[in-house]
Simulated assay, not measured.
Amino acid sequence: MSHRGTDRHDVIVVGVGGVGSATVSHLARRGLDVLGLERRDVPHAMGSSHGSTRIIRRAQHEGAEYVPLADRAYECWRALEERSGRDLLTVTGSIHAGAPGTDLIGDVVSACDAADVPYERLDAPTVNDRFPGYDLPADFEVVFQSEGGFLDVERCVSAYVTDAHAAGATIRGRERVLDWSETGDGVRVRTNKRRYEADELVITAGSWAGELLPELAAEAVPVRAVMTWLQPTEPELFSPERFPVFVLRSHEEGGYGFPAYDVPGFKFGRSADPLEVVDPETMDRAPTAKDEELHRRFAERYFPAGAGPTLSLRTCVQSFSSDEEFVVGRVPGHDTVTVATGFSGHGFKFASMLGEVLADLAIDGKTDHDLSIHSVGRVL
């Protein structure tokens, strides 16, 4: 299939963030001539694959169907660590903490039980004593899972890009895809710099997927999110050895967070309700005083030892599907096009195995991984 040395390739991958970089790597390591196209820098801070850390966990409150995907993602991340010689995944344990009457704890327990994931049920005082960076309300219910942790997000993208280069892939940054068309024997892609042809097209463009596949615009809705770093007043409590990653839900708000790592401060995010839909090209990317106030209030309530002076706030853009399941697969009506989008704020942890899935689909039109609940066909 190789067309090296020409502007025709076996596969073109559009969007080289978390999932796209993994896809280019998986395809290139299988011997294909792969071109990755990224409209911004590689890596960049304008989408959803930046901000130092992303949670990875086996405890999947989203449903038991996600657990086998997470397990394979762990394997693929560890394999990338071995090939790259870089530390990418840090295990801290993961905490799900929910107020009485919220669905979070019931959902995560059901998923863990169905998928045979071991966990501990804890009360809030026990958590606060074991992990004193936490100060959960006494009536909160908690699930602790020992294998959760976080990924170094920019390092992961860079490792996959380097991995792809080593396998012969070409990746072009600052090159925007203007349009594409099927030709009968593949696809033709036009960018702001040149034209390319390929046998297969894979679209992993995140919040920009709707530009390239208008029929899926409602399944890749761009949503603004804010990440915050505060200086802990007791920094020793927020080290990776003493502070598990968390997902938290009360009746009024939700959030997620991490120990201090790589950049200064205790990092967390507060879930927006309702979701703030934006245009990723024209949105104001500067965090606001209101963002800071809401996030500080969250930290003061649940993690007061982490609620010191503000260090940093950063925005990102996440693509949300209509039912908040992923949108992955061959695109109906297109013989040579595969897409992955709509990760709804929790996709990066799966990027390593999604690259494998997309390589399967581009090469064979099918995969052994069960992504039936994420099928493109359910929304088209």
Score class of each variant (00 low, 15 high):
4 R>H: 07
6 T>M: 07
8 R>P: 02
9 H>E: 02
11 V>G: 05
13 V>T: 06
15 G>K: 06
16 V>E: 01
22 A>P: 05
26 H>N: 08
26 H>L: 02
29 R>W: 06
30 R>M: 01
31 G>N: 08
37 L>W: 04
37 L>T: 01
38 E>V: 00
38 E>M: 02
39 R>A: 11
41 D>K: 11
42 V>L: 15
43 P>T: 11
50 H>A: 06
51 G>T: 12
52 S>T: 14
64 A>L: 01
67 V>G: 09
73 A>K: 13
73 A>E: 06
75 E>Q: 15
87 D>E: 15
89 L>I: 11
93 G>S: 09
94 S>D: 13
96 H>S: 14
100 P>Q: 10
100 P>T: 10
110 S>A: 15
120 E>F: 06
123 D>K: 07
127 V>H: 09
130 R>P: 12
131 F>Y: 15
131 F>P: 11
135 D>W: 10
136 L>I: 11
142 V>G: 12
145 Q>P: 10
149 G>T: 09
151 L>D: 12
154 E>D: 15
155 R>V: 13
155 R>K: 14
162 T>C: 06
167 A>I: 09
167 A>V: 09
167 A>R: 06
169 A>S: 00
170 T>N: 05
170 T>R: 00
172 R>V: 08
173 G>K: 08
174 R>G: 05
175 E>K: 02
177 V>S: 00
178 L>E: 15
180 W>K: 02
181 S>W: 04
182 E>F: 05
185 D>Y: 03
189 V>Q: 04
189 V>I: 06
191 T>M: 02
191 T>S: 03
192 N>L: 04
193 K>Q: 12
194 R>S: 13
195 R>Y: 06
199 D>E: 15
207 S>M: 07
220 A>R: 13
222 P>H: 08
228 T>Y: 10
233 T>L: 02
234 E>S: 11
238 F>W: 06
241 E>W: 02
243 F>V: 02
245 V>Y: 11
249 R>P: 09
256 Y>N: 07
258 F>Y: 12
262 D>T: 14
264 P>R: 14
266 F>Y: 13
266 F>I: 07
267 K>R: 13
270 R>C: 09
273 D>F: 12
273 D>P: 01
276 E>P: 06
280 P>A: 03
285 R>A: 15
290 K>L: 14
294 L>R: 11
296 R>L: 14
302 Y>M: 00
304 P>F: 11
314 R>D: 14
315 T>D: 12
316 C>S: 13
319 S>I: 09
322 S>C: 12
325 E>K: 12
325 E>G: 13
328 V>E: 01
329 G>E: 10
331 V>P: 04
333 G>R: 05
334 H>Y: 10
339 V>M: 06
343 F>D: 08
346 H>C: 04
349 K>E: 01
356 E>R: 13
358 L>D: 01
361 L>G: 03
363 I>H: 03
368 D>Y: 00
372 S>Q: 05
372 S>H: 05
373 I>F: 13
374 H>T: 11
376 V>H: 03
377 G>V: 04
379 V>Q: 09
